[in-house]
Structures are given as structure tokens and as C-alpha cells.
Design a protein around this nucleic acid. Structure first.
Lengths: 170, 170
DNA sequence: GACAATTAGTTGCCAAGGCAGTATTATCTT
DNA sequence: AAGATAATACTGCCTTGGCAACTAATTGTC
């Protein structure tokens, strides 16, 4: 649990004071690490980490109903997801239920304990994000998100080019 | 090598089409993953990955001279760094040299092969970042970076508060 | 209807990162 | 000067994530 919790403290204030401006890539790694560290630290008292959080959040909001959904949504490996769900099921937060029409799928639902816990988890999550965005105006947040979207789109088309270059499907 | 290379392809176009807007956290994870995936893919032909890249870059630019420097800069575990350096030394890209004044430290230098390779690596890196920032004006890039800086600062002060709350140093 | 292709989920294996503990050397305190 | 404290690097252990291989079930094609 909370593997990221310590390195944050260990390595604060790293590349500051050198005067050299950091690249976009490192800034993003930094900012993301800060978010995840904070989230992990807060979730530790629930015995959960940020990965569990996202799973529960998506299940609770109905954004995902199966393991495959969750993997697509979180860019996550299916094998790893199986193990995450094993653990959440052990904890009594999630229930698996084999589908009756399509018997390949296993539908996921929050167990009562999970449903009871979720609001508190969501509160933690929003609090952390809001703290990180303190001082941002609404339009700044929009601009920020649009920049991120544009980066992702750029990366996507770059990837498409690379793939089509090295042979599509014969 | 390139552990991140495949999941990009596996999971593209994940949470799109749902109409729901993604949160800042997920957008950042996404964008960062795109950068790292692209970098890993390009570095595969050198037998390197994005972690190696950052190490060589910082050594080459003089931004770091020891393993501890690199760890602070990259928010990286010292044990893991030792093993990274083992590998880079095996490959003949880096040399270790015990300090003579302070005999605890091991100074790191690029070996000739590493010095020769570095420009090509840097070219790859900047090409990828530029591709991800295609269509961004200079002022947009500045705004983007300032947003990231502000997020990091916010996270930092949040962390300071948490620490001082739970007892400083007795 | 039979066969291929696809999708979902699971399991085992491997590499990487984080942590604790240790040895060595420096520095600070007194 | 002696001892406590800190910093650097390294080693072993554990968890996690990614990948490949596999099974089961569905869909599509001929």
C-alpha cells in the first residue's frame, strides 16, 4: 500500500534552485506524482491506494461495469486488473457476478460496504484535486484541460502515423 | 525494455465517446503516458528506455554528477538507480569514479560511447515533445508550463501542511 | 452447421520500483 | 578527541504492472 507515499517526502524540492527551467515532460511527471502521492497518503487510512480509488469511482458512477471496461478506461492491464479486483472483493467492497446473457463477462457491482465508503473516497479525491488547482480560475482550468487534450491528440496521431508506417494490416 | 510500448496500442481511445469530460488527473496521466510511450518506442532501437534517457540527459548536461543527484532530480529510488547505473555501465555508456575528496560519493561521467550517443537521444526526445506540442504557440506553452508549476507548488504546500500538522521534528 | 476470428477473464512469469537495512565516509556537537 | 548524526551508495525483499499463454464463450463467415 501507498508505495508512492514516501518518495514524495524523500525527494521534495528536487530540481529547484538550479535556475534551469524544467521541460514539459518533467513538469507533468512532477505534477502527476504530486496528485498521486497526496491521494495515496489520504487513502492509506482506508487501506486503499489510488488504483483502487479509480476502480471504485468508475464502478460507483456507472462509468464501467466490467473488468474490461475498467482497463480501457484506466489504460490498465487486464491481468493486473484481475488481481486488483480480487483484493477489492476480499475486502468486501466489490462483488463479481457472472453475466447470464453473455457468459464471458463478469459484471462488477459495488458491495454495500463499497457503496457506503464511496462518498468519503470521492470527497478525498475532489479535495485533493481542488487543492492542487487552488488559485486557478474556471477559465484557466478549461485552458489547462484543453492543452492536455491537445497534447493527447497530438500523441495519438503521431502514434497512428508510426503504426501505419510500419505496416497496417495485410 | 519498453514495457509501456504496448498498452498504448492496446488501450487507445479508451474513455472517449462517453461524452463525459475527464478530470485533470486522468488527462495528465494520459498525456504523460503518451509522452513516455512514444519515447520508449523510439529508444527501443538503442536498447534503452525513457528512464535511461533521463539519466544520460542529466549527466550529459551536467545537471547531475552523482547517483544521489539523479535520484533527487528524477524523484527516483536510490536502490533502483544503482541498478540502472549498473546496466548503463555494462553497456559502456557511463563510467563510475569514486570521489577522492569525499570518498562516499561516486561521480558519474558519460563514457565516450555515451557521449557519442547522447546527441541522437536528445534529438529523439525533443522531436517527441515538439510533436506533442504541435500547434501550440509560444505563449500557450508558457501558460501550460506555468499551470503545471502552480499545481506543483500547490501540492507542495499542501504536503508541508500535512507534515507540520502531524508533528514536525522533536 | 462448421470453422475462424474476436472478446473476456484468468494465471504464471518477468522486469522495475520502492523500502529497509547495512557499510562507509563526513560532518557536527560537546 | 569521541561520539552522535547525516549522507552516499549498495544489497535483498516485496509489490506491482505488463506481457504471453490459456480457457471459455460469442460473433461472423462460408
Amino acid at each position: 500500500m501507498s508505495r508512492r507515499a514516501v518518495i514524495g517526502a524523500q525527494l521534495q524540492g528536487a530540481a529547484q534552485g538550479t535556475g534551469e527551467s524544467l521541460g514539459v515532460g518533467q513538469l507533468m511527471s512532477c505534477a502527476r506524482a504530486s496528485l498521486l502521492n497526496a491521494l495515496d497518503a489520504e487513502l492509506e487510512r482506508f487501506g486503499l491506494n489510488s488504483t483502487h480509488f479509480l476502480v471504485l469511482k468508475h464502478l460507483g458512477e456507472g462509468a464501467a461495469r466490467t473488468a474490461a471496461d475498467l482497463c480501457r478506461r484506466n489504460r490498465y492491464d487486464t491481468g493486473a486488473m484481475t488481481r486488483i479486483l480480487d483484493r477489492l472483493e476480499e475486502k468486501g467492497l466489490v462483488r463479481r457476478e457472472r453475466g447470464r446473457e453473455d457468459r464471458r463477462v463478469v459484471f462488477l457491482r459495488l458491495a454495500p460496504a463499497g457503496r457506503a465508503l464511496l462518498p468519503r473516497l470521492l470527497a478525498v479525491g475532489t479535495r485533493i484535486v481542488e487543492a492542487h488547482l487552488a488559485g486557478f480560475s474556471a477559465s484557466e482550468i478549461e485552458a489547462f484541460k484543453s492543452y492536455l487534450h491537445r497534447m493527447i491528440d497530438n500523441g495519438q496521431s503521431q502514434l497512428d502515423n508510426r503504426e501505419s508506417a510500419s505496416g497496417g494490416k495485410p
